[in-house]
Simulated scan of single mutants.
Amino acid sequence: MAQNNASQVDKVSGIVAQTRNDVGTEPHDRIVEVLHQRLEQAGIQLPDDEVSELARQVSTG
């Protein structure tokens, strides 16, 4: 189970890094939209508030 959690954290980290490269300078709402799409494609479900926080981190570096 711990390996699955670590794997998911690694996936989220990779998604955040790629999103930063692709749309990091775009508006917050666009970053949230891209994160939601990519997380869904990876089979990862996060609450909206966590996705919003990740988007904030993407835009601030």
Rank of each mutant, 00 (worst) to 15 (best):
N21D: 15
N21E: 12
N21A: 15
N21F: 15
D22H: 08
D22E: 14
D22F: 11
D22R: 12
D22C: 07
D22W: 14
D22Q: 06
D22Y: 03
D22V: 07
V23Q: 04
V23S: 02
V23W: 02
G24W: 01
G24L: 02
G24I: 02
G24A: 02
G24S: 01
T25L: 01
T25E: 04
T25Y: 04
T25G: 14
T25P: 01
T25K: 00
E26A: 06
E26Q: 01
E26V: 02
P27N: 09
P27R: 03
P27W: 00
P27Q: 04
H28N: 04
H28I: 01
H28W: 00
H28M: 06
D29G: 05
D29Y: 06
D29H: 09
D29P: 00
D29A: 05
D29T: 02
R30E: 03
R30H: 10
R30T: 12
I31M: 01
I31Y: 02
I31W: 07
I31P: 07
I31L: 10
V32R: 01
V32N: 03
V32M: 02
V32T: 01
E33G: 14
E33V: 11
E33R: 08
E33I: 03
E33S: 13
V34D: 04
V34E: 15
V34G: 08
L35K: 05
L35Q: 12
L35D: 00
L35V: 07
L35R: 08
L35H: 11
H36C: 14
H36I: 13
H36E: 13
Q37T: 14
Q37M: 11
R38D: 09
R38Y: 06
R38E: 12
L39K: 01
L39W: 05
L39P: 03
E40G: 13
E40M: 07
E40Q: 12
E40C: 06
E40V: 04
E40L: 06
E40P: 03
Q41Y: 10
Q41C: 06
Q41W: 01
Q41R: 15
Q41M: 13
A42I: 06
A42T: 15
A42G: 12
A42H: 13
G43W: 00
G43C: 08
G43F: 05
G43R: 05
G43D: 04
G43M: 13
I44G: 05
I44H: 03
I44W: 04
I44N: 15
Q45R: 12
Q45D: 14
Q45L: 15
Q45P: 08
Q45G: 10
Q45T: 09
L46T: 03
L46M: 06
L46P: 15
L46G: 03
P47I: 04
P47L: 04
P47E: 04
P47K: 14
D48T: 08
D48V: 04
D48K: 07
D49I: 08
D49F: 10
D49K: 03
D49E: 11
D49V: 13
D49Y: 01
E50N: 10
E50Q: 15
E50V: 10
V51D: 02
V51S: 00
V51E: 05
S52V: 11
S52C: 14
S52R: 15
S52G: 07
E53V: 06
E53T: 08
E53W: 08
L54V: 15
L54Q: 05
L54R: 03
L54C: 07
A55V: 12
A55Q: 15
A55L: 08
R56H: 07
R56E: 14
R56A: 14
R56D: 15
R56S: 13
Q57M: 11
Q57Y: 13
